[in-house]
Design a protein around this nucleic acid. Structure first.
Lengths: 123, 123
DNA sequence: GCTATACTGAACCATATGGTTCACTATCAG
DNA sequence: CTGATAGTGAACCATATGGTTCAGTATAGC
């Protein structure tokens, strides 16, 4: 498939955001960069556990990190989530179109005495 | 946490969308309702496998199904993805704010001879 | 009534995920 | 130099995920 890479990117992004701990870490980091320890503490998980989450976020390019001294500084990555937004926009447009079709269908059938089981479904 | 249910809903939604097969099924169904068999075929998976994906989408309320005769009619669910959109909007606003702060920071420090290591980071 | 079709549920499998512990390295502070 | 601190990597564990097969049930069509 042509869009294979984009598909993969969507996979990684949606998956990264599917975990509440990771979303929490993004929120924490959006208030200012933090160390692994600072990210681990509020969730009561180990440094190792936190590091794993951070790596997932890095791979989705939602976070970027830099080792400074013995601590790792984690900050928000540059991603605007444009591709994800695009997918959602497409989906919502589809949904809107579907509702429009339903609307038309209801108008069309208004006044008919009975619902015909054999009638074409609107969606 | 107060927002526990919403958190869970976000979890389920992001997770449901993280799989390319499921996104494909949503796209297929957005063109008109389809049976389990019709959803399975393009991905070369079994009916059982397809049914599992459909169930995940149902639980995320992205798809709704109805058993008619011996086939199960799958159509788009009513969800507008509003909560997900809201989360993403918040994230993007944060990102924008972060870039603004960086911008100010760069203006502030313009003309200073040297980068001071001890200086407050912009983000 | 009989047969083909459409789906379902249980059992199973391999891999991924989210977490741990423990031993280790690297740096900071005195 | 020495001790405390911050993080890392490997090994491990339980559960979840994405898929299968196989034996059913229920309906459609003749």
């Amino acid at each position: 498939m042509v869009h294979y890479q984009e598909e993969q990117r969507l996979d990684r992004t949606f998956a990264a955001l599917a975990d509440p701990t990771r979303r929490g870490m993004l929120e924490r980091v959006s208030a200012g960069s933090a160390s692994i320890g600072e990210l681990a503490a509020p969730f009561g998980i180990t440094l190792t556990g936190a590091r794993k989450h951070v790596r997932v976020l890095e791979e989705a390019e939602l976070m970027s990190t830099e080792k400074v001294g013995r601590t790792r500084l984690c900050s928000l990555g540059p991603r605007r989530l444009d591709d994800l937004q695009e997918w959602i926009d497409g989906y919502r447009r589809t949904l809107a179109a579907r509702l429009d079709r339903l609307d038309e269908f209801l108008k069309e059938t208004k006044g008919e005495q009975r619902w015909q089981a054999s009638r074409q479904r609107p969606c």
